[in-house]
Structure formats: structure tokens, C-alpha cells
Amino acid sequence: MHELSIINALLKYIQPYLNRKIKCIKIEVGSMSCIDPERLIGCFDWVKATAGLSDTQLIIDHHPAKASCQQCHQDFSLTQLGQPCPCGSYDYTLLSGQQLTLTEIEFA
């Protein structure tokens, strides 16, 4: 269950701020990150009490991936691997979409 590894990494980065009450944590998840957001929340809920984050909410900010097409040279967004460019080509370079980033800590 790699979602748990992700949550453990998150807790490490939250650690320095635990002296204050945290209302919510926001992470950005790219649609190509192969992370299941529901499981991610599930793992967070599972460990939050022990981590001193009982009242903290984890918010997941979904981001579709962006790619640049080698055929028509346009950028387009996609939500799934193996999805073609609007021009029909499968030959493209991902510009973003794999990110798993802690972006916000909101204090109570």
C-alpha cells in the first residue's frame, strides 16, 4: 500500500509545524501519479490521531496532466495514460501530472 508511504512522508514534512494547531493540509496530486486519492485519505484518517492531527483535514487537489504533442505541437491536458492528443496522436511528452506535492498548511 504505497499510499501509506506517501502519508508517512507527509507526516515527516508536517512534523516541524506540530507545535501549532493545524486545521487543514492540502496536497496536490497529479492525475498520472498512480495514487488513489480515496486510499490516501483513508491512510491519513488511520494515522491522524497518533500523529497528533485528530482535528486536521487532508484536502486533495487534483490536477490533470499536461502534455505537449510531438505531432501537432499543441499542449493539451489528459486525465489518463494512453489517452490521445485531440489530434489523434499518441506521441507526446508529459509536462506535468506526476506531482505529489504538499502545497498548504492552514493553521487553526
Binding site: A9, Y13, Q99, L100, T101, I105
Partner: peptide
């Protein structure tokens, strides 16, 4: 101010 503040970061979770 101490209340309602938000810290913005760009921390890749798999950075380590």
C-alpha cells in the same frame, strides 16, 4: 497574525 494563517509550500512528498 496568529489566527487563520496559511503556509504555502512546494514540497514534493517523494523528494527523499
Amino acid at each position: 497574525p496568529a489566527e487563520s494563517q496559511t503556509l504555502h509550500l512546494q514540497q514534493a512528498l517523494l523528494a527523499e
